[in-house]
Design a binder for these strands. Structure first.
Length: 378
RNA sequence: GGAGGGGUGCCCGAGUGGCCAAAGGGAGCAGGCUGUAAACCUGCCGGCGUAAGCCUUCGAAGGUUCGAAUCCUUCUCCCUCCA
């Protein structure tokens, strides 16, 4: 799990005497949804929490308005402070699904950054050479590609490093991509004559496409607050090779690897999906989502819908219109396309004429492999 | 302040007067197959219309033309270089 531990012996010895460690982790509230990628860190924090250490969670509501340049090829569009404060609220709701609110200290870095004095900023800047900041690969790359680096982006790593100066943690944890930021915080603490923090970084979780890191903007994420069936389904849609990455990095406890290897790949993935849903919704909900997944699969090849199909009442009209009204297609043209592609079944019969008029009665409408509706035509 | 390059559909990115609703890729959707909502293969992928066809779209507004994403004018935003 722990990939990089830049402990120096001396420092490690120093912290080992302290029984209760102060652990810091920062989250920039850039979007509204937390996902499995965030969970990796959150569960690490929970681990520390359960072992009795003190957790400080920094909500970077101020630094998020700048945007972390880590790994960025171009500058990020900036967020307003109102936006980040808004995001922060929903972040906490999601975070507390995992961490114990009573034992978690929340700090907003706007508290000390929003009205920071220019003299303080200059003091911070004076402690860190610009060359060091620009050595980072992301900045370096931008310079050689003639991409702009705005001055506030240069300040980002300094300001988030300053968080550590204010909070004085023993350890800061973060994603692998945060290594430079975390090291900088450590250095800055030294410059302020504070005992420098130690650093733990965790590998970045890949998204469900198996190619890029999990992120909301790439829409390859499994959200912490998504429904159980969605989480289950999304997990089942990951490429096979990705299962092992998830099993390892999400620390799925139950079956041992040796046992998993004996299983059918599909079964392994189902186990993974089950465990992921369990984390966020509990065991009985996971049970339900597994059942509904199997039902859905079953229904795919059969004429009967799964349980709990939404019922909808509509006036008599053409099948294309009905599909649109059920919001199974966003336009009539799209509905017609689906019909042309043979994706539409009414009471188990394939409909190929989009002008087909549906008369009074109750029908089971299936569009595509997975979408079912009970339609009552009045 | 000066010089130049650019803004194309969900995203990336071709296209420089008609054959452009706009290549290609990605995402998405559908069908086939299967071990799954995996992989693979195929197709679709602006809207309206039963259809013929019509309408809207290539940063914005005007203009030239039988005809414009493509030419001209103004505006606007972005980028690079020089100072």
């Amino acid at each position: 799990m722990i990939m990089t531990t830049p402990f120096k012996n001396k420092e490690a010895k120093g912290t080992s005497k302290i029984t209760k460690l102060i652990i810091k982790a920062g989250f920039d509230p850039t979007g509204e949804d937390l996902h499995l990628g965030h969970f990796v860190l959150l569960s690490a924090l929970k681990d520390f929490q359960q072992k009795g250490h003190k957790i400080i969670l920094v909500i970077g509501d101020f630094t998020a308005t700048i945007g972390d340049p880590s790994g960025k090829k171009t500058s990020r569009s900036t967020l307003s402070f109102t936006q980040t404060s808004e995001n922060a609220k929903t972040y906490l709701q999601q975070i507390f699904k995992i961490l114990d609110p009573a034992k978690t200290k929340i700090k907003y870095n706007s508290k000390w950054l929003k009205n920071i004095r220019l003299s303080d900023i200059l003091n911070i800047c004076g402690k860190y050479p610009l060359n060091r900041i620009l050595e980072r690969r992301d900045f370096h790359l931008r310079i050689s590609n003639n991409r702009q680096i705005y001055t506030n982006e240069i300040l980002y790593p300094l300001l988030q490093a300053y968080d550590s100066v204010v909070l004085k943690p023993n350890i800061e944890i973060g994603g692998e991509d945060q290594l430079l930021n975390l090291l900088m915080a450590k250095d800055l603490m030294k410059k302020f004559n504070l005992p420098p923090q130690n650093i733990l970084t965790y590998p970045l979780l890949l998204g469900i496409d198996g190619k890029n890191k999990m992120s909301k903007s790439l829409n390859n994420f499994i959200g912490i607050s998504e429904s159980s069936t969605n989480q289950f389904g999304k997990t089942m849609s990951i490429p096979d090779e990705l299962m092992w990455h998830y099993l390892k990095n999400l620390k799925i406890p139950s079956p041992k690897t040796s046992e998993l290897l004996k299983m059918h790949p599909k079964e392994i993935k189902q186990t993974l999906a089950f465990e992921i849903v369990t984390i966020f919704h509990g065991r009985s909900e996971a049970q339900k989502s597994l059942k509904s997944f199997l039902e859905t699969l079953n229904a795919k090849n059969k004429k009967n819908p799964p349980e709990n199909v939404e019922r909808i009442k509509l006036p008599s009209s053409s099948i294309a219109t009905i599909i649109e009204l059920c919001s199974l297609a966003s336009s009539k043209t799209k509905a017609k396309r689906l019909i042309a592609q043979g994706a539409v079944h009414l009471d188990g019969c394939k409909i190929s004429d989009h002008t087909f008029k549906v008369e009074k009665g109750i029908y089971t409408l299936k569009v595509g492999a997975l979408n079912w509706k009970r339609v009552e035509i009045l």
